[in-house]
């Protein structure tokens, strides 16, 4: 089953900042629309591999990136489950 992590942000600007941090650090990521299960607004989230979650948490602790929440998403489509990690 498909499994990945997701970061949500307080604003689009924070999402774009975080994107450039991850790009510079060479961490594979994708900018995706925030799933409807999390919020109905047209927000941007960043999707990344579960393996990188510790690295991402360090960036959050060091205030390199400014996030709202980290989620883990399992499955896709209607059989999707989303849990808050941090």
């Amino acid at each position: 089953m498909k499994e990945y992590c997701l970061i949500t942000f307080e604003s689009v600007n924070f999402a774009m900042q975080a994107e450039s941090v991850l790009k510079n650090e060479g961490i594979y990521h994708q900018v995706i629309p925030t799933p409807r299960e999390i919020t109905l607004s047209c927000g941007l989230s960043i999707r990344f591999n579960v393996d990188n979650v510790e690295k991402i948490k360090t960036f959050v602790d060091n205030k390199k990136i400014n996030i709202k929440k980290i989620y883990i998403v399992k499955g896709s489509g209607v059989d999707k489950s989303i849990e808050v990690l941090k």
């Binding site: 689009v12 999402a15 774009m16 900018v31 995706i32 941007l44 999707r47 896709s76 489509g77």
Partner: peptide, 17 residues
């Protein structure tokens, strides 16, 4: 332009789903 680039990524990803 920066927002436009981010939105394009978001749009194309949503299109795959």
């Amino acid at each position: 332009d920066k927002l436009g680039a981010a939105l394009m990524k978001s749009y194309l990803y949503a299109l795959t789903e």
